[in-house]
């Protein structure tokens, strides 16, 4: 292994430790909140929708339906949020020339990916034990869908870390567009249930494909025929490359003191 690569690994490891201590370590409740937040949200959605509907769009469990949608959405969304703030929240540490903005992205993504894996395992085992048994999960679909969500999230996060820095207007516009994303991505409905031509409009949103793919892994009988795997993977990889390109072109900007 080359010296430069070893340095990157050392710095990334140090940043992961630093992030863990500030995000979770200083207060005991830190780790608990990472899990309480999605659990509370899924529970709330389940209660509200079971009051207004007889049964969820697939299966019998409201909790499982919203958990499958929300966790897939959350993997993408939380990764984007975390990565877009990575350089900013480590700005002081970027005064060490040995620490590069790239290292902060990798460290954030690694820590967030680990957290997501832990939270997903906890939530779905909780559901399997207390709510409804989960037969024949399709792990290949779950893992691929999650990896695509992570790739897309990291790419857009890196892109935003630069664009937010350059333009406050962009940040406002992005937030406005991003807010209804949760509603239109199919967390609490299936895109199949939406009539044409609106369904086609919805399917321009890559997150709806991610959720469909993820649900395929939870429900063995659900096909999610609308998911365009090749297109989705293409978008995710394109986002990652654009993110890498933009952040390396504007490396100096990310280091500048605000």
């Amino acid at each position: 292994m080359s010296a430069a690569l070893r340095t990157h690994f050392r710095v990334i490891a140090a940043l992961v430790i630093r992030e863990m201590t500030t995000r979770y370590g200083n207060k005991i409740g830190g780790y608990i909140w990472a899990i309480v937040d999605p659990v509370a949200f899924i529970a709330l959605m389940s209660i509200v929708f079971s009051a207004i509907a007889h049964s969820p769009p697939i299966g019998r469990s409201f909790v499982l339906f919203y958990a499958s949608g929300y966790m897939a959405f959350w993997i993408y969304r939380s990764m984007t949020d975390q990565v877009s703030q990575a350089a900013k929240s480590n700005r002081a540490l970027l005064n060490y020339p040995i620490v590069s903005p790239f290292d902060t992205f990798v460290a954030r993504a690694a820590l967030q990916g680990g957290t997501q894996l832990a939270v997903c395992v906890l939530i779905f085992s909780g559901i399997a034990v207390f709510i409804t048994p989960l037969h024949s999960l399709d792990f290949q679909s779950l893992i691929t869908a999650s990896l695509v969500a992570i790739t897309l999230g990291v790419g857009i996060g890196m892109l935003n870390s630069v664009l937010f820095r350059m333009s406050e207007v962009y940040q406002q516009v992005f937030n406005i567009i991003n807010r209804p994303l949760f509603i239109v991505s199919g967390v609490f409905f299936l895109p199949e249930s939406i009539p044409h031509p609106y369904q086609d409009y919805l399917l321009w949103n890559p997150v709806s494909h991610i959720i469909g793919w993820f649900r395929r892994g939870i429900y063995p009988s659900y096909r999610a025929a609308f998911v365009d795997e090749a297109w989705l993977i293409g978008i995710a990889i394109a986002a990652l490359f654009t993110g890498l390109l933009i952040t390396s072109a504007f490396k100096a900007k990310l280091r500048e003191v605000a």
């Binding site: 710095v11 630093r18 201590t21 500030t22 620490v99």
Partner: peptide
């Protein structure tokens, strides 16, 4: 100009620099 993470303690900052 400051090269410290404010939310970390002095000791934690030292450890960070030692690691990098």
């Amino acid at each position: 100009a400051g090269s410290f993470a404010g939310s970390l303690t002095g000791e934690q900052n030292v450890r960070f620099v030692a690691r990098i």
